[in-house]
Design a protein around this nucleic acid. Structure first.
Length: 108
DNA sequence: GCCTTGACGAGAA
DNA sequence: GTTCTCGCCAAGG
């Protein structure tokens, strides 16, 4: 484990459930703004199970190819955490979901 | 050392 | 919103 890997793992672990961060965001938070492409590598190199499913692309889309096993896993996990996804893309957070449901119940 | 690949990002048309 | 182009860094052949 390099300092980079440790920093990345720390940041990924700190992502709260129901939230997602992009690879670039994680890299920046870890202190390596140019290492967006290496975040995935660092996560794979992690020995302990990380909430990798909370890491998506900057456009909030799942990075794995559609139809892949990892893709479905990430999708399922994000849905489990209350996120709303459309065509492999996150279209809202937990708070937004609550707001949406509330608005639907009241305003129709 | 050179070229290709990868769970990427940002800007422009 | 889609599509193209360029930039970025590390690992492997």
């Amino acid at each position: 484990m390099n300092e980079f890997d440790k920093a990345i793992c720390l940041v990924v672990r700190n992502i709260p459930a129901g939230h997602v961060m992009s690879y670039g965001e994680v890299a920046r938070a870890a202190g390596f703004p140019r290492h967006a492409r290496l975040v995935a590598k660092a996560m794979t190199r992690a020995e302990m199970p990380l909430p990798w499913h909370r890491v998506v692309k900057s456009n909030r889309q799942i990075a794995f190819p559609k139809g892949s096993v990892a893709y479905r896993e990430q999708l399922a996990r994000l849905r489990e955490e209350g996120l709303v996804l459309r065509n492999g893309r996150v279209i809202g957070g937990s708070q937004d979901l609550d707001r949406l449901l509330w608005d639907m119940s009241n305003g129709g």
